[in-house]
Write a protein that binds this DNA or RNA. Structure first.
Length: 509
RNA sequence: GAUCCCGUAGCUCAGGCGGUAGAGCACUUGACUUUUAAUCAAGGUGUCAUGGGUUCGAGUCCCAUCGGGAUCACCA
């Protein structure tokens, strides 16, 4: 244990000796918040020059001590609550019991530490330097802190000193990060508001929020490697879901016209600035609709989110160098048009050989097993994606890469699928859902052939899902959104770790 | 998985060509009844990530391991 921790434990002992419970059980009634008092305190100057204080004259607030400035028989503290910070003025005179000044001289000055939770009661006033301050008339320790916080200081010019910046420590101890870097709270508050706005929109559309299994006997709905676990009593493997798609479709089969789910999903893959092994996928499915309808709904929903989160109520979100405009309608390209525009390739006439030649010329890594569809996917990733900064729908993909998507109504070899790109990254993936059970079985069989050739991510055949389709699924449109990536866009963050409270880390040594 | 960079006090960091550890804040003691990065005086901080090696001597050089970051690969 460090010196500072030993000193705090000793303070804890002395407090108990003085009859003060460092962790009292009873509630402390809070009647005011720091930011409100600072913003709304009012006083008037009378004719004789004296000040008349107009509000917040009996307030109780609670929070952490974040700074102490002693000044003899008085001291100033900065108190931080969930709303912000306010200065406290604590005067020895207020705490005398007869001649006994122990409470001020010992308890407040010696035994309280930065980071301790206290509750105070008093009245607001302005110091002669003009800072709104609470003059404390009663003070109660609410919870003792036994470790020193890495306190961040800010000087008069606003320069930050000794910022707690190490990403490893910030992410391992998010509780410390949120305490000493309260500006990061705003990211998570915005994330929550984003989800709330989406949920409200989907509710208005009449969709039902549902919950589907996380533990699945067959994983499907996406192409990815799963986490595997085991059920002891059933003595069988179970997979943590990589998607909730096939379960939401079962509910459409069951007669719900529209369902949605904010789903934590799990993919057993690398960790980097845009990937965390567990992340949030929001999918919704609506019967009797197609992917064209979904584009309009997507535009409306994201425009509403942008207006809710932007500083000025506009649909424009600044992100790095860009100003992303989420007001619909968004640009729409077919995949063929997008590739033609950015590469000059005409994929309707290009042969597999032409595509390979293009990749070789442009240093795009490919391997001999790739078919036309995969080559197109590579070319798209390398040459097109990065240009799609403003929200853009890319539609009509090759059938080979989309085993759950309905064949295009008029273009052979393609499916009715779109992806939404923003800032060069995919944020949503949508289909007119494949509801022909015989076609679906064929697609699973193709996936099995990929698996036999060693594709670890090929989709497994889900017989129960096929049975559901055989009973009949109405024509349905469905879409999935990467909630974490959307949160990154709407909060201006460049790593997924910054929009997750507790990103995955290796264990501490 | 590959490559590069990083790991020194509670936090942020400095430590030349290898000679036995430093600053600011935090902390301790004292002074100060309107301070605000409070100030003033005095004081102590440590398995230099871990384990080996080279050397008379390693925070410093070499190897391995662990953790983090960046880029790439993989992956949506």
């Amino acid at each position: 244990m460090t010196d500072q921790e030993l000193i705090r434990r000793e303070a804890l002992r002395k407090l108990r000796e003085l009859g003060i419970d460092p962790y009292p059980a009873e509630a402390f009634e809070v009647t005011a918040f720091a930011a409100d008092i600072v913003a709304n305190y009012q006083e008037e100057t009378l004719a004789d020059g004296t000040k008349n204080r107009l509000n917040y004259q009996d307030v109780a607030l609670a929070g952490r001590i974040m700074a102490v400035r002693e000044a003899g028989k008085a001291l100033f503290m900065n108190l931080q609550d969930s709303s912000g910070r306010i200065q406290l003025y604590v005067r020895r005179d207020e705490f005398l019991q007869g001649d006994d000044a122990t409470f001020f001289d010992v308890v407040i000055k010696k035994l309280l530490d930065l980071g301790d939770y206290i509750g105070v009661r008093g009245f607001a006033f302005k110091t002669r330097t003009g800072e709104v301050t609470v003059h404390v008339q009663a003070l109660k320790l609410l919870a003792k802190s036994l470790r020193p916080l890495p306190i961040v200081k800010r000087d008069a010019e606003g320069n930050v000193h000794d910022a707690f910046t190490d990403p490893e420590l910030r992410h391992r101890m998010r509780y410390v990060d949120l305490t000493v870097n309260p500006e990061y709270r705003q990211i998570f508050i915005k994330r929550s508001k984003m989800i709330r706005t989406m949920r409200a929109y989907l509710d208005e559309l009449g969709l039902l929020e549902v919950e589907t299994p996380i533990l699945q006997p067959v994983y499907g709905g996406a192409l990815a490697r799963p986490f595997i676990t085991h059920h002891n009593v059933l003595d069988m493997p179970l997979y943590l879901r990589i998607s909730n798609e096939l379960y939401l479709k079962r509910l459409i089969v069951g007669g719900f016209d529209g369902v949605y789910e904010f789903a934590k999903v799990f993919r057993n893959e690398g960790i980097d600035r845009t990937h965390n092994p567990e992340f949030t996928l929001m999918e919704f499915y609506v019967a009797y609709k197609d992917y064209h309808w979904l584009m309009g709904v997507t535009e409306q929903m994201l425009e509403r989110v942008a207006r809710a989160l932007s500083d000025d109520g506009s649909a424009i979100i600044p992100y790095g160098e860009h100003r992303l405009n989420f007001a619909g309608p968004y640009a729409r390209f077919t995949m063929a048009e997008a590739i033609r525009q950015y590469t000059g390739l005409d994929i309707e006439t290009a042969t597999e050989r032409d595509l390979r030649a293009y990749c070789d010329q442009h240093n795009i890594e490919i391997d001999p097993s790739m078919g036309t569809a995969q080559l197109l996917d590579e070319i798209f990733s390398e040459k097109v994606e990065k240009h799609l900064i403003q929200p853009t729908f890319v539609l009509d993909y090759p059938i080979e890469m989309s085993p759950l998507t309905k064949q295009h109504r008029s273009k052979p070899g393609l499916v009715e699928r779109f992806e939404l790109y923003v800032n060069g990254k995919e944020v949503a993936n949508a289909y007119s859902e494949l509801n022909d059970p015989l076609d679906q079985r064929k697609r699973f069989e193709e996936q099995r052939r990929w698996a036999e050739r060693g594709d670890e991510e090929a989709m497994a055949t889900d017989e129960d899902f096929l049975r559901a389709l055989e009973y009949g699924m109405p024509p349905t449109a469905g879409i999935g959104f990467g909630i974490d990536r959307l949160a990154m866009l709407f909060t201006g963050q460049t790593t997924i770790q910054e929009v997750l409270f507790f990103p995955q880390m290796r264990p501490e040594g």
